[in-house]
Design a protein around this nucleic acid. Structure first.
Length: 907
DNA sequence: CCACATCCCTAG
DNA sequence: TAAGCTAGGGATGTGG
């Protein structure tokens, strides 16, 4: 049998634990495969006579099945040879955490290793299996190891199991669902009092010809055949679970199901059961009932054999949006409308037996449709599936977890192969100690930008800088010189200190992993070029993206205080090489390279040419900005520099710098900014061109400035985007000034009653990031959260982005933040002056100030002339002032005289 | 006017 | 089984 592994767990059996693998076969069958015979174990490092200790362990702990002495390396530090350690096998997986602390009390016991690996992961790692990987099995019988009914097409026991090479994805089945509850008095429904009245489900592929079904717990007249009505809530719920099991989905999704629908259904079922109703919420492929656990403030849901995917957190982490309500997400990402019945009107719609009820049903249907559309259309899972395949973690773990478990997984596999053990996760005390330590982790180097408007800036960056640094210098937990010194004596000393053995002495595990990931990525990208169809291309693209994510996860992991393998020495070595590297790069370009001559379609250095003719196209280079792994190089010449010219220069720089670096470090030519405006570190806008085939594709890219920040209003970003376009593309500062004056005038004369849409443009959002009580200062969004709580009884949940506008008044700014909906409903006046003086003009001034424009000249009010000037005319255009300034900018940048009339530049 | 703390969000 | 990392700008507010 061949199938793709979706999920894994184990069951207890008198013969020992039995692994269960759940999956789907290529022909569409769902599979449950029992694998007996794998045993749980962990390692112990001890002093003294190990065989005596082994005997003692077996005597003292009857859950220990056997103890073996095996040679192993310790987790950290270069070591000349392995040392004997104990490998302790237990009866049951749960015995490992039960005894791991107690065994340390025995004489000689020093440390235990690999004591917190989930049994199913231990199995996958040791057998070389991967999440979403394909396996082939030898089927020996149909006898399952338990009496539980298994909800799969094919159930069997495997005598052998092997991974097979295959990157495609099985025909997965998706179900999305959404519930509607009847609120009491329009307030937030709670399972104690509000019944579930409807459940909508969407299927991909269709279920018996239905893309959607809506279950309704009352009689419905005149609805289509995809509406099923029931006499009671209990009947509806029971049918829901039957249909759920019958469809047998691999991926169970919805929008905010983890924090709402699933806990609500589970709680509601419990309440109904307590009142004598008979509801069995069977959802697992093993028949397990629906349940959830609260971990911290997060709800974890797991359904054996299936993967639970809440679209909300996935969208949060993959898209930067101002709000993550289903309404807004559907609009922004799918261009679809969510349909809604206001909570206050729900009861009315529900009690209606005609049009309103049918409308309500359609609205409910739409929610599960939107959820499944988000997952399928946006291909939210592609990347996760690829990450599971590459890292080996199960899909559920990849979807739920962070980078830590993926890195752990890869490290465990490679450590195992090389005979090294891995420590368990650090205790809270150890983490606290690590955090308290005075020694910190320094990050990347950010070069001070040359502020103002520049032309012809070539942008280059280092390909996977940190991973390549680790590979180039053999930086690893396993190569740091601690206990043993290498015989040859050859070591690498990073700028930050510490000492690492070179790859000749011993190649580090991390560099090896990174190398294979990098190699696979190059290979995958190569395959993408000859992909035969779109689906193959997509799988490959997801794979190369997953490889990139994993490549970049190792550095962060090494500096993460809760990581099993935490090493500041290592993390600091990486960043210190990075800082040294970018500074060296700048010095090389400004000094050694500094001039490039363009001739006959090639770029040369002075020394590469016999002589320089007066007519030669000489380009002078200087680094004007850089952040961590990038350099921005300004090209100056007496002649016009075309994009192709700049491209030649860029490639020349990239090749030259790369040649001076150890393998596999590489500086890559990225793009060309025809014009670039640097405001500050991490804040700039460029009119940038990238090569796409034979063509150059251009556009404006903004980094860090207010237009890309969600805590500024739309009015600001729209205005800024416009003036950036005018300045960068057209070089027309005059037009930019006029535009700002027009906008300011418009804001000065806002009439909210005539133009309620304007509120949208004035709305800012901020994340309600922690419990209200842990804020030390008042915050505008906190004010609004409090007001909402007063009005509705429920505060917005932590993690939500809260929209607000600033209303007129004399109070402090923070107290004048107000819910935009409330403002609209009650016609509350907006603080126009705040929007002009605090939202619009400061960012505008940061940009136009470069050209000598004075803000005072921008604050223009047609209705109230005389605010800043005393004539009847609109204020004098400030353009004259910046004309001089502009001339300076130009002569500075391009020492050639251009004619300029209304526009600054004339391309 | 300033230095400083706090908060948010972004770049990489 | 909660959580990759640091650098940095800018707004607001406090206290001198």
């Amino acid at each position: 049998m061949n199938f793709q592994i979706l999920d894994a767990d184990y069951i207890g059996h008198e013969s020992g634990p039995v692994i269960r693998l759940f999956g789907r076969a290529e022909d569409g069958q769902s599979v449950c495969c029992f694998v007996p015979g794998f045993e749980p174990y962990f390692y112990m490092n001890a002093e003294g006579e190990l065989d005596k200790l082994a005997t003692m362990l077996k005597e003292r702990f009857d859950v220990i099945r056997k103890v073996e002495i095996v040679p192993k390396f310790e987790p950290v530090g270069y070591q000349v040879s392995k040392k004997p350690m104990l490998c302790i096998t237990t009866m049951e997986p749960r015995n490992v955490p039960e005894i791991r602390d107690d065994v340390l009390n025995l004489p000689g016991a020093k440390e235990v290793y690999e004591t917190d690996i989930l049994f199913r992961n231990r199995f996958m790692i040791d057998m070389g299996l991967h999440g979403m990987g394909w396996v082939t099995t030898e089927e020996i019988s149909e006898t399952p190891f338990s009496n539980d009914h298994i909800y799969c097409d094919s159930v069997f026991t495997a005598s052998s199991i092997k991974e097979t090479e295959k990157l495609s994805v099985a025909p997965l089945k998706h179900i999305s669902f959404d519930i509607e509850c009847l609120p009491i008095d329009g307030s937030m429904p709670v399972p104690e009092t509000s019944p579930v009245i409807m459940i909508s489900m969407s299927f991909g592929p269709a279920f018996n010809g239905h893309d959607t079904l809506v279950l309704v717990s009352k009689k419905v007249e005149g609805a289509g055949e995809d509406v099923i009505s029931f006499d009671t809530e209990t009947q509806m719920l029971n049918r829901f679970f039957e249909l759920f099991q019958e469809y047998d989905a691999d991926i169970v999704s919805g929008y905010n199901i983890n924090d709402f629908d699933i806990p609500y259904i589970a709680d509601r079922v419990a309440i109904l059961s307590n009142s004598g109703e008979s509801v069995r919420p069977t959802v697992g492929r093993d028949g397990r009932v629906l349940s959830y656990r609260k971990i911290g403030n997060r709800t974890m849901v797991s359904i054996p054999g299936r993967v639970v995917v809440d679209a909300l957190p996935l969208i949060r982490s993959q898209y930067s949006l101002k709000r993550y309500t289903l309404r807004n997400v559907a609009k922004e990402l799918l261009d679809m409308e969510k349909l809604d019945v206001a909570p206050s009107e729900m009861e009315e719609y529900w009690l209606d037996d005609g049009e309103k009820l049918l409308k309500f049903i359609d609205y409910a249907r739409r929610d599960s449709e939107l959820a499944i559309e988000l997952i399928l259309k946006l291909r939210l899972l592609d990347k996760h599936i690829a990450v599971a395949q590459v890292s080996g973690s199960l899909l559920q773990e990849v979807v739920d977890g962070g980078q830590t478990s993926m890195v752990d997984n890869l490290l465990l596999r490679e450590y195992g192969k090389q005979g090294r053990v891995i420590p368990p996760k650090p205790s809270d005390e150890l983490v606290a100690m690590r955090n308290r330590s005075s020694e910190g982790l320094k990050g990347g180097e950010v070069l001070e930008p040359k502020k103002g408007l520049l032309e012809n800036v070539v942008i280059l960056d280092y390909k996977s800088l940190y991973p390549t640094i680790m590979m180039a210098h053999n930086l690893c937990y396993t190569t740091v010189v601690e206990q043993d010194r290498p015989a040859g004596g050859e070591t690498i000393v990073p700028p930050s200190g510490g000492e690492f053995v070179s790859a000749h002495v011993s190649k580090g595990i991390m560099p090896s992993i990174l190398e294979s990931l990098l190699q696979r990525r190059v290979e995958t990208k190569r395959k993408m070029k000859n992909a035969s169809d779109e689906s193959e291309y997509r799988v490959l693209d997801a794979t190369q993206l997953a490889l990139k994510i994993l490549l970049n996860s190792f550095y962060g992991y090494s500096g993460y205080t809760r990581a099993k393998l935490y090493s500041l020495t290592l993390a600091n070595a990486v960043t210190s090489f990075g800082r040294e590297n970018i500074l060296n790069t700048r010095a090389l370009i400004n000094g050694g390279i500094s001039k490039v001559i363009l001739k006959d379609g090639s770029a040369y250095f002075t020394e590469e040419l016999p002589s320089i003719e007066p007519d030669d196209h000489v380009v002078s280079l200087s680094v004007v900005y850089g952040d961590t792994d990038s350099v921005f190089v300004q090209c100056a010449s007496k002649k016009e520099i075309s994009l192709d010219d700049a491209g030649l220069v860029g490639s020349k720089i990239a090749a030259t710098v790369s040649a001076s670096l150890p393998d596999p470090m590489e500086l890559e030519f990225e793009s060309i900014a025809k014009r670039a405006l640097f405001i500050a570190k991490k804040r700039y806008a460029i009119w940038v061109f990238e090569r796409s085939g034979e063509e150059w594709k251009g556009g404006i890219k903004v980094k860090g400035m207010e237009t890309v920040r969600r805590d500024w209003c739309e009015l600001t970003s729209k205005t800024l985007n416009r003036i950036l376009e005018l300045v960068l593309k057209e070089g027309n500062v005059e037009a930019a000034v006029q535009h700002v004056r027009k906008v300011v005038d418009g804001v000065r004369n806002i009439d909210v009653r005539n133009d309620s849409d304007i509120i949208e443009d004035l709305t800012m959002t901020r994340m309600f990031s922690k419990k209200a009580t842990s804020y030390k200062n008042k915050q505008p969004h906190l004010t609004v959260a409090e007001k909402i709580e007063e009005r509705t009884g429920t505060p917005p949940p932590v993690g939500e982005r809260i929209p607000f506008v600033i209303i007129a008044g004399k109070d402090l700014f923070v107290n004048r933040a107000e819910d935009p909906e409330y403002v609209k409903e009650n016609n509350i006046p907006i603080d126009v002056d705040y929007y002009i003086k605090k939202q619009l003009l400061p960012p505008v001034e940061r940009i136009l100030g470069v050209f000598g424009v004075d803000v005072a000249n921008l604050d223009y009010d047609s209705k109230q002339k005389g605010l800043f000037d005393f004539s009847d005319k609109p204020p004098e255009s400030p353009v004259k002032k910046f004309k001089q300034k502009e001339a300076e900018v130009k002569t500075q940048q391009t020492p050639v005289n251009r004619k300029s009339q209304s526009s600054l530049f004339d391309f």
